[in-house]
Design a protein around this nucleic acid. Structure first.
Lengths: 168, 168
DNA sequence: CCAGATAGTTGCAACCGCCAACTATCCCGT
DNA sequence: ACGGGATAGTTGGCGGTTGCAACTATCTGG
């Protein structure tokens, strides 16, 4: 179990309220981003999962299919089909793994890199404007917190074994 | 427009870097949260969209189906089917609209409210622990930023008319 | 009172995600 | 070196989601 980084301060009166507000704000953000991501399909010729997969393959170099499935929190069969689609469109290639003949090495093609760059830049441009209003220390602190939320969620997902209600 | 915390510094050299880091962190957060949300299905007897819909109906009082579709950024036909499922499970009811006989008023049932509370509390408990490590100013600044990101995305979606690449 | 707008439902086709079964390959203990 | 178990990936099947288009019922303005 990933323990808390610091002990909880039970006397902090604003914690409960701040948490609720963050929860609501995050809920809104997730909802609208899921729509925005769905909408990318028609703009950029990829689906949501395909976009995430492409992004992962550009960010990190060659991953195996299992790596990609873990990165996307998807079943490997689903990841395989996502790669099928990206390969058909010419954004990704399956290469033989040099050390393990069962495995494949996934690589983004130049076209894939270019598409990922276009998507990334279109979103970065929008977000830069928003962040400009915040002091650098605040921006950096927010990134730290968001990373920590992501890591904690990822840890709780992994210790939960992927299925939260399984009681073995 | 929501006021800025600080004036923009156009010469700020760290803005581009901070934006990229926040983008990556947010990408990770969204991916894992989408998985976490998918996983709620088996724990709480609702799907992701159903959960969002229930949440919206509890937060705001009676909405029409069109209101709900807009809130969820879904087509009204999809929203109708989401409501079908929630109604079948007893979490939501369709009531006749007092002013417009074409419309329906959607209301969460007591069971729906209870379920929403359980889901909400289970997540709040987890997030409270994480947030306890951060100073109150940072927590609040993050909520402000997330709200602003959500609002900006929502605005750009609405001005785009829902389909970003339509060129009428 | 009628034409056009609006609220909602349903049919349809495509997609997504998981589980289970299967093949090919790897690795470890004997 | 070899046989059994573990692992990588693919495929089939099922259920659920989504958007578009067509349809009905109702409202509203001239």
């Amino acid at each position: 179990m990933d323990t808390a980084l610091l002990p909880v301060l039970p006397s902090d009166p604003s914690l409960a309220r701040d948490t609720e507000e963050l929860y609501d704000a995050l809920e809104d953000l997730l909802r609208v981003y899921q729509f925005r991501d769905r909408d990318r399909i028609c703009c950029f010729d990829v689906s949501v999962s395909q976009c995430y997969a492409l992004e992962g393959l550009v960010r990190r170099g060659g991953m195996t299919l299992n790596d990609l499935a873990a990165y996307l929190y998807l079943d490997k069969s689903t990841a395989s089909r996502v790669v099928d689609a990206l390969e058909r469109k010419g954004y990704v290639t399956r290469l033989p793994h040099p050390k393990d003949r069962r495995a494949v090495l996934l690589e983004a093609t130049p076209a894939g890199r270019e598409l990922e760059g276009k998507i990334r830049e279109s979103i970065l441009a929008e977000e830069r404007q928003l962040l400009a209003d915040f002091a650098p220390e605040v921006r950096q602190a927010m990134t730290v917190l968001i990373r920590r939320l992501a890591r904690a969620a990822s840890a709780s997902v992994e210790t939960g074994g992927g299925s939260c209600c399984r009681i073995p």
